[in-house]
């Protein structure tokens, strides 16, 4: 699958932290990992609203959204982000990174989150998860 993905158009990823959570060590590392993997990273930084993220996805024609969550607010904020993108008619996968306890993984995936990356994910896993999530959406929408 990596052969196919390298010939795909460059993947554009919006990375953001929603709400108050200020832990930005992880998301900055992920930004560099994705950039090193050849993707274009639109890094919005801290304290973003759903609307800011939706606007960035529209303006930058992004293929995926990455959210970093370390404050146990993943169950409230991530599903709202999925809904906000859907309401805007944007079909982009939302990938959640950070601290998500095991028992929250299934419920969170059921809300429409495309993938969850936990602590200890390797650089290759991070990049491949984004490629796979983007490929799944591109594969399902004939106009892409």
């Amino acid at each position: 699958m990596s052969d196919a993905s390298t010939s795909d158009p460059q993947i554009r990823v919006v990375l953001a932290k929603l709400g108050f959570d200020g832990h930005d060590r992880g998301i900055k590392i992920v930004a560099r990992i994705l950039r090193d993997a050849g993707m274009e990273v639109i890094f919005l930084g801290l304290r973003q609203s759903y609307k800011n993220v939706v606007n960035a996805v529209e303006q930058e024609d992004a293929d995926a959204v990455g959210l970093s969550m370390h404050n146990a607010s993943h169950m409230t904020l991530a599903p709202k982000m999925v809904d906000a993108l859907a309401e805007a008619g944007l079909e982009v996968p939302v990938i959640v990174g950070g601290i998500v306890p095991d028992e929250d993984i299934d419920p969170l995936m059921k809300t429409g989150v495309a993938a969850i990356l936990g602590p200890g994910a390797s650089a290759e896993e991070v990049a491949q998860t984004v490629r796979d999530a983007v490929a799944a959406v591109r594969g399902s929408s004939p106009q892409a």
């Binding site: 709400g19 108050f20 304290r47 404050n71 146990a72 607010s73 169950m75 409230t76």
Partner: peptide
């Protein structure tokens, strides 16, 4: 608005 899910948490 942003306090949802954060009140009394950490």
């Amino acid at each position: 608005d942003w306090a949802l899910g954060e009140v009394g948490h950490c």
